[in-house]
Amino acid sequence: MLSLSVVQNALEVGFIYALVALALFLSYSILNIADMTTDGGFTLGCAVSASVCIMGHPVLALFAAMIAGAMAGFITAFLQTKLGVPSILAGIVTNTGLYTVNLAVMGFSSNLSLFNCDSIFTLAKDALSPVVGSWYKLIVAALITLIICTLTVLFLGTRLGISIRATGDNPDMVRASSINTATMITIGLCLSNAMTSLSGAVLAQYNKSSDINLGTGMVVIGLASLIIGETLVGKGGMFRCVLAVLVGSVLYRFIIALALKMNVPAECLKLVSAIIVGFAIALPSLKNWAAFQKRKWAALHGKEAQ
């Protein structure tokens, strides 16, 4: 079966990508917006993180990436709340523009290498590896993700958090409660894209490289994790939802690791992800259809029997 190093690797990457799933939890599950900025926002995080790392500031790189991501989210939100661009299109427009921005951030080269500079992981290695050995990467990844998850759970219980949740649940009611829905959508998308970019930022330092195509298909991967988590852990309070995101993201990485183990070529993984997402989102409809066919069959054949 899976070796320890594969398990370790799946956990590390699972925690890093969990931030994308958490971002989609905020935009897709809570605000009810399929945010197509995600792909470009993820690469933006990688690019900013790599560039700032090369300047020698790996920790600052994470914050810079989050600010950049929030700005991307702001543009998407501005397009849809102020200029009347449909939400999916707004994300696609931003995403397309981000491709050039990302290239520019990386100095118009399609990849950057971080092998010769410090990252949060090399810093952690110096400090932690005498004690925890090779687990230092997991500790860093888990720590960052758990901090963001905790902040998210706390935030969603504040007045502002409740207002954002209600905006996705019933916008009519929110307007009637003196809350500006446009502001809530803007805050929500800024936060979610900051998380996506943070995920990209951590991944770039983890991989010791940044590539212009790293974010491609990220929205589907994030949704797959989110849906796996919601299916297995279920919905409930905010804590449970965020826990589901974590579980889903880590499990998704185990599924990928298993697929690789079974010699599924790496090029096929995006198709596997797409099939998982398509199937999982379609599942309720399929269940209804199956139940209806069963009833219909029973009704028709029941009559014949009489």
Binding site: F155, G157, T158, R159, L160, I162, S163, R165, A166, D169, N170, D172, M173, V174, A176, S177, S178, I179
Partner: peptide, 30 residues
């Protein structure tokens, strides 16, 4: 139309009660 179905009674009421505070005031308070 007047309530958010996936949120608790308490959360719905606290939303309505936001009117009592100044705009932006105590956004991060629980």
């Amino acid at each position: 139309k007047g309530t958010a179905p996936h949120m608790s009674i308490e959360e719905n009421l606290s939303l309505a009660y936001l009117r009592a505070s100044k705009p932006g005031f105590g956004a991060f308070s629980r």
